[in-house]
């Protein structure tokens, strides 16, 4: 266990060195936050209570989302794209011969990254937004651990998806196209273009059942207290997807190892 802790700490430190990038990222998130607030204010003005959100829910959604895009790794998670690059270049063979679990190794790296970005970038847009708008915060202290748990599960589900995409390079020659496709799906189904609650009819039903919903929409709804089936069901939903995806990830790792070790790559 010690080695994975050390890996996570090292990854945390590495990301903490990009100071100017962090500051300019927060600035960009804030600009997008204001733009989306303008859009959502108009939308919820035209249709009050859209998707069960009131105006304050919608605005809080914007600032939470802007803070979480990077930590959750909707885009810009350089850890798993580095893994994908290693698979493509063949450098992954070195990792497979290490006496550590590939999946746990990269999970540690990704959690180190996510923790830094959550601490450095996660709260900043929320703070900016709270200065201008009336935002919602969890109503009782008892909710905070659930929020944290939901976030952790969200980050891990996101990791598990990105891990599978990166490993697809073992079987698909052009895994960069796969990464792009995964980006489209996650932009669409994680709730970055609109809260999933605003998706109409069957599209909404499908969107809210995908693993991408578990990465960002669900944690935000835990914060807002807006999960249709309650917070417990939401956490169970996340946990279910995490279990399935991690098992798939482990299976993919085993198959990939066999492929590399037996066929020599």
């Amino acid at each position: 266990m010690g080695v994975y802790w050390a890996i996570a700490v090292r990854s945390f430190r590495r990301f903490s060195t990009y100071r100017i990038a962090t500051v300019s990222g927060i600035f960009t998130n804030s600009v997008f936050g204001f733009i989306l607030c303008g859009v959502y204010l108009t939308l919820w003005h035209e249709r009050p209570g859209l998707g069960g959100y009131d105006v304050s829910d919608a605005l809080t959604f914007v600032w939470l989302q802007q803070g979480l895009l990077m930590p959750v790794g909707i885009f810009g998670a350089s850890t798993t794209s580095e893994l994908g690059e290693r698979v493509r270049s063949g450098a992954i063979a070195v990792d497979l011969y290490r006496p550590t679990q590939l999946l746990l190794w990269w999970l540690s790296v990704d959690l180190g990254r996510a923790t830094f970005q959550l601490l450095a970038r996660g709260g900043a847009p929320l703070l900016v937004g709270a200065l201008v708008f009336d935002l919602k915060f969890p109503s009782s202290v008892a909710l905070w651990p659930l929020v944290v748990l939901g976030l952790l599960l969200g980050i891990m589900v996101s990791f598990a998806i990105r891990y599978l995409v990166a490993l697809s390079g073992f079987w698909i020659t052009d895994s960069r196209g796969m990464e792009q496709l995964a980006l489209v799906l996650s932009l669409f189904f994680a709730g970055t273009i609109l809260p999933l609650v605003a998706f109409p009819g069957w599209l909404g039903v499908i969107a809210r059942a995908t693993p991408w919903a578990a990465t960002m929409q669900v944690p935000i709804d835990i914060w807002l207290g807006r999960n249709p089936g309650g917070t417990g069901a939401a956490l169970l939903f996340q946990f279910g997807w995490l279990l399935v995806l991690l098992l798939a990830g482990q299976l993919a790792t085993t198959l990939a190892t066999r492929k590399v070790v037996i066929q020599g790559g």
Partner: peptide, 12 residues
């Protein structure tokens, strides 16, 4: 390191 800053006026 300020590449992302420009994104706020271009993509933003």
């Amino acid at each position: 390191d300020s590449a992302e800053l420009a994104n706020s006026v271009t993509y933003g």
